Amino acid sequence: MTRLDVRDIPPVNRHPTIHEKFEELEPGETLTIVNDHEPKPLFYEFQAEVDSFDADSYEVEQVATDEFVARFPKQEV
């Protein structure tokens, strides 16, 4: 599992960094991101643009007021 805390990354760089880390995953692996808000726009972006994103297995959990943990799984081949 690859975990990426994006809270300290400038907002303009978050999505490109997340996409880059996701592309580095092997099929069947999951990118777990920690964010300060629910990443719905990112989910929709991945759903529309990333063929290897397993949208059906996506999960998000709010752990604190400003902490959301989202799991972006990569489809198995």
Rank of each mutant, 00 (worst) to 15 (best):
E26C: 04
V50D: 10
F43D: 00
L4K: 14
P11S: 11
G28F: 01
V63W: 04
F22Y: 11
G28T: 05
D5H: 06
G28S: 04
H37C: 13
Q62K: 15
I18M: 08
V77K: 09
E61M: 12
E38T: 08
F53G: 00
H37Q: 01
F43H: 03
G28Y: 06
V60L: 06
Y44V: 02
E45V: 02
D66N: 06
K40M: 00
T65K: 11
D56I: 11
E61D: 15
Q47W: 05
P27M: 07
Q47V: 12
A55Q: 10
F43Q: 00
A70S: 14
A55L: 08
E20T: 08
F43K: 01
Q62P: 04
P16D: 10
P16C: 14
H37M: 05
D36L: 04
R3Y: 14
Y58S: 03
A55R: 07
F22V: 08
E76H: 15
P16E: 12
T2R: 15
E26D: 09
Y58N: 03
L42H: 02
V60W: 03
N13M: 09
D56E: 12
Y44H: 10
D66T: 09
E24S: 06
T30R: 07
F72H: 01
P73S: 09
E49C: 06
F68A: 02
T65N: 13
E24I: 03
L25D: 07
Y58T: 03
Q62F: 09
K40L: 01
L25W: 10
A64K: 09
S52A: 12
Q75W: 01
L42P: 09
